[in-house]
Amino acid sequence: MVTRRQLLAPALGAVIAASSIPAAFGKARLGEDGLYQFDWYVESFLDLADDLAAATRDGKRFAILWGLRNCPACRRMHEVYMADPKVEAYIRDHFAVLHLNILGSREVTDFGGSRLTEKRLAAHYGIIGTPAIQFFPRQADDLAARPPRDREVARMEALPAQDGFLALFQQVVG
């Protein structure tokens, strides 16, 4: 005869094993603003030149992730794509990610010193949907003199298939 203890032991073992996964992996939280956040996303004074310089000092690439409250693709990106420890670790180790709200009202200082709300900055760069990710060069040397779209080295304008998501980040690093 099988006891309840014997039946529940494998399930208990799985729970214990799952709890030993490092806390940083797959733990996006939904912020008060409705955007998903990871603890490793950039805490910023919203000055893009400073954020890019800090990323470069840390040996990382600077990227802006544009999101929106209740965005199904943003949710999928955070809860499925980035829940993969390999994907999250790669992005965390190689990128400084600033998460902005495409309709947000916080003031952001652009590379040339202009102060725009998140919403106006998104329009300035031609960001029209979420999630979108802008990838910037390692140096801000002449970014202010370039047209906004020419400041980027790559852009994700819509959520790709899951197998292409990590490949995009790897391409930018390479």
Results as ranks from 00 to 15, higher is better:
Pro10His: 05
Pro10Met: 04
Leu12Asp: 10
Val15Gly: 06
Ser19Asn: 14
Ser19Arg: 13
Ser19Asp: 13
Ser19Thr: 11
Ala23Trp: 10
Ala24Ile: 12
Lys27Asn: 15
Ala28Cys: 02
Glu32Tyr: 01
Asp33Thr: 04
Tyr36Val: 07
Asp39Tyr: 01
Trp40Val: 01
Leu52Asp: 02
Ala54Ile: 03
Thr56Ile: 03
Gly59Phe: 08
Lys60Val: 04
Phe62Cys: 06
Ala63Glu: 05
Asn70His: 14
Cys71Gly: 00
Arg75Ile: 04
His78Ala: 10
His78Gln: 12
Glu79Val: 14
Glu79Asp: 14
Val80Met: 07
Met82Phe: 02
Met82Ser: 01
Pro85Leu: 05
Lys86Trp: 09
Lys86Thr: 15
Glu88Gly: 10
Ala89Thr: 04
Tyr90Ala: 06
Tyr90Gly: 09
Ile91Ser: 09
Arg92Asp: 05
Asp93Tyr: 04
His94Asp: 05
Ala96His: 06
Val97Thr: 10
Leu98Thr: 03
Leu98Cys: 04
Ile102Pro: 07
Ile102Asp: 04
Gly104Met: 06
Glu107Gly: 07
Phe111Thr: 05
Gly112Glu: 05
Gly113Thr: 07
Arg115Glu: 11
Glu118His: 07
Glu118Val: 02
Ala122Thr: 08
Ala122Val: 02
His124Gly: 00
His124Tyr: 14
Tyr125Asn: 02
Ile128Gly: 15
Ile128Trp: 10
Thr130Tyr: 03
Ile133Gly: 00
Ile133Glu: 06
Phe135Glu: 08
Arg138Thr: 14
Gln139Leu: 13
Leu143Trp: 09
Arg155Asn: 08
Leu159Ser: 06
Leu159Gln: 04
Ala161Met: 03
Gln162His: 12
Leu166Thr: 02
Leu168Asn: 01
Phe169His: 05
Gln171Gly: 11
Gly174Tyr: 02
Gly174Phe: 02
